[in-house]
Design a protein around this nucleic acid. Structure first.
Lengths: 192, 192
DNA sequence: CCCATGTGAGACATTGATGTCTCATACTGG
DNA sequence: CCAGTATGAGACATCAATGTCTCACATGGG
């Protein structure tokens, strides 16, 4: 059926375009629609048929980022085992999306007055709940609020993505850098 | 003398415009030149007489940020006393400029191909040297590189500025949040 | 074979920000 | 009072990105 074929093809292409745009905008956040189209291997006309304008593209990327974040949070099983292990699993799962996250992180600074997507609130809530669980179990310190720890996590993910992209640190160190700084800090531990 | 008066007045006004622009762009990084002018209480023509274009304005803001950072680093006396105390002093000194830093932090993501200002390299180097000193003295752990700790510090400063601006945490908690997370991490300490 | 549909290429107008210019006005020092 | 100067207001051109449209081509199914 033409309708079936149409829908499937569009979906596949749309996803491919979205991935290409994410990869490009992660590196150059001011890329033109022409550049985005070229990066995806399609013409600007076709790009505009998929996403009616740059705004729609960014919104779609935001939705993709939210979906990947939520999937990562699901896969990390935040309510199982030690809270610190859950944090490690989460960073591990979210690492492939760190570049996209970094792009959306700065892009969100533009959405000044507008309310942010509901999906972010949900993800923020789930991660904050994990930090709160760690505090209740005595694993995490209580003088750093869950809200701040959540924000700091996203900030460190963005910083990590950029510092890896700039070549200052090896991609393999990404997970260790983020997790160890977030959980353990820079000070040397006496124990262990 | 007209020349004297001219120079002095320009300098004062220029600094005032720069501060206003920094305050506005910290909140709305995409503000128009008209908005910047209005925020400074001058006309767009006069703004353009001080800074020939948005690019020049951003460069001037970058120079201001570098100057304030360097002054903060100087005032913090990074090579005196315990490294962790030096970090605390530095964050304390740099806190007033955190908003401007956050703006420049995202703005630098646009300068893709271009080489960054030499001033940043100097500041990065001085801060990285502090972390290295802390490692050499056994105060800091050695598995987190000074380069990463430096980048993470700037990332946390930007995150802290935004989270305070959004009202999610109190401004008074800024210093404690940044320093304690950077130095101690989220895990509870057994000692002390 | 023929038609439908997606696509690429390009022309064209629009829009928003910006750079530039002129002119009238207010102030300041001599 | 007068000259010099900075300023504000606004007009105007420019420029880049974008939205929109048309047309030709290819491909795939009936």
């Amino acid at each position: 059926m033409s309708h079936m074929g149409y829908g499937c093809l569009m979906a596949v292409d749309r996803d491919h375009v979205l991935r290409s745009a994410a990869a490009l905008l992660t590196r150059k956040s001011t890329a033109t629609m022409d550049e985005v189209a070229k990066a995806a291997g399609i013409s600007r006309a076709t790009l505009h048929r998929h996403f009616a304008g740059r705004d729609a593209l960014v919104r779609a990327l935001e939705a993709l980022g939210i979906a990947e974040c939520e999937a990562a949070v699901d896969a990390a099983r935040l309510d199982e085992g030690a809270a610190s292990d859950a944090v490690r699993r989460m960073v591990r799962e979210i690492e492939p999306a760190a570049g996209l996250l970094a792009f959306l992180y700065t892009e969100n600074q533009l959405f000044e007055g507008e309310e942010q997507h509901e999906g972010w609130s949900r993800i923020d809530g789930r991660i904050a709940a994990l930090f709160r669980r760690g505090q209740d179990s005595g694993e995490f310190r209580i003088d750093l609020t869950p809200a701040w720890l959540t924000e700091a996590l996203f900030g460190l993910l963005a910083s990590g993505a950029w510092v890896v992209q700039s070549g200052k640190v090896a991609p393999n160190d990404f997970h260790h850098m983020i997790v160890e700084l977030l959980l353990g800090g820079a000070l040397r531990r006496e124990e262990s």
